[in-house]
């Protein structure tokens, strides 16, 4: 304390003191991010350019072979499927989440917190357990099939599990709150008297939605979509449990390279590729947002 006092007294102007206080406050966060985020990331980048070690790890020899291997169409197929599944998930989350967020935000204030809580409650259960619950629902002798068979609607059980649809279902289930919460945050600030104004000026419900509500909540839509899309692309637990051999995603590939194939450098190269591809939409978003602000 005395050392701090001594130091801050040596700073002449208020400006200097403020800068000093600010850097003091920012130090823990900056330190943490540097040590546990930037450094590991750099290690991944570094590894992707090194030879693989026999039992995992790396040999310290520069190579570009892992990036050359990425050109193999097999990996592009997996990447394409990951992007498609994540895009589907994002779109469906938006279609399901937007009306829900709108509904919650337009309730009287005393109801909103309760309704939001209901959205968040599933989070309190372990993610794995919740995905296993989907297996119980979807498998051949699961809830849905038993129900359909008891009504004699189907002769033999449907194959609901271990395909892309099951993975998409699981992803939507897992990431829906990430869509609803930012949407709610924007819709809560939405001035609902603008709906009256639009109706008053001759806009029906659809036109009001397109011309007024969607543009004014675009930030929430983009934020929610990014929050769903980015983790969904890299997902490996959900496709691992609910997907079959044909619905393997990038996350599974990275996962298997590190743990099963013990090819750390190739796993690293895959991660870098994925990161680059996920980064692209964010950069585009920020560029557009910047232009809008300047306009």
């Amino acid at each position: 304390m005395t050392l701090l006092n001594w130091f801050s007294q040596r700073l002449k102007t208020n400006q200097q003191r403020q800068t000093f206080a600010l850097s003091l406050l920012l130090f823990p966060g900056t330190f943490w991010l540097l040590l546990f985020f930037v450094v590991p990331l750099l290690i991944v980048v570094l590894y992707s350019f090194l030879e693989r070690g026999t039992y995992g790890g790396v040999d310290w020899q520069f190579t570009l072979e892992h990036y050359a291997r990425l050109l193999n169409p097999i990996y592009w197929g997996v990447l394409g499927r990951s992007l498609l599944l994540a895009a589907n998930t994002t779109l469906l989350c938006l279609l399901v989440g937007y009306p829900m967020a709108f509904f919650i935000a337009s309730r009287p204030a005393r109801w909103r917190n309760t309704l939001l809580l209901l959205v968040i409650i599933p989070f309190w259960t372990n993610f794995l357990v919740r995905i296993y619950a989907w297996i119980v629902i979807l498998r051949q002798e699961g809830v849905i099939n038993t129900f359909l068979e008891s009504l004699h609607l189907v002769g033999e059980p449907l194959d609901l599990l271990f395909n892309s649809t099951a993975v998409t279902l699981g992803l939507i289930y897992g990431y829906l709150p990430f869509m609803i919460l930012p949407l709610y945050a924007t819709l809560e600030r939405f001035d609902f008297s603008l709906l009256d104004a639009a109706h008053d000026l001759g806009a029906n419900d659809l036109k009001t939605l397109i011309r007024i509500v969607l543009p004014l909540t675009a930030r929430g839509i983009v934020a929610g979509s990014l929050l769903v899309f980015i983790p969904a692309v890299g997902e490996f637990v959900t496709p691992d449990l609910l997907g079959g051999a044909k619905s393997i995603m990038m996350g599974n590939l990275v996962h298997s390279q590190f743990l099963a194939a013990r090819n750390w450098p190739f796993g690293s190269a895959l991660s870098i590729l994925m990161m680059a591809i996920v980064l692209a939409p964010i950069l585009i978003y920020f560029r557009i947002a910047e232009q809008k602000l300047n306009a």
Partner: peptide
């Protein structure tokens, strides 16, 4: 009949101008 089918218009208390 909904408001968008009435030849009546309103000036609102807080103006309700479209901010975007």
């Amino acid at each position: 009949r909904p408001p968008f089918h009435r030849p009546i218009n309103t000036v609102f208390q807080n103006y309700a101008l479209f901010p975007h």
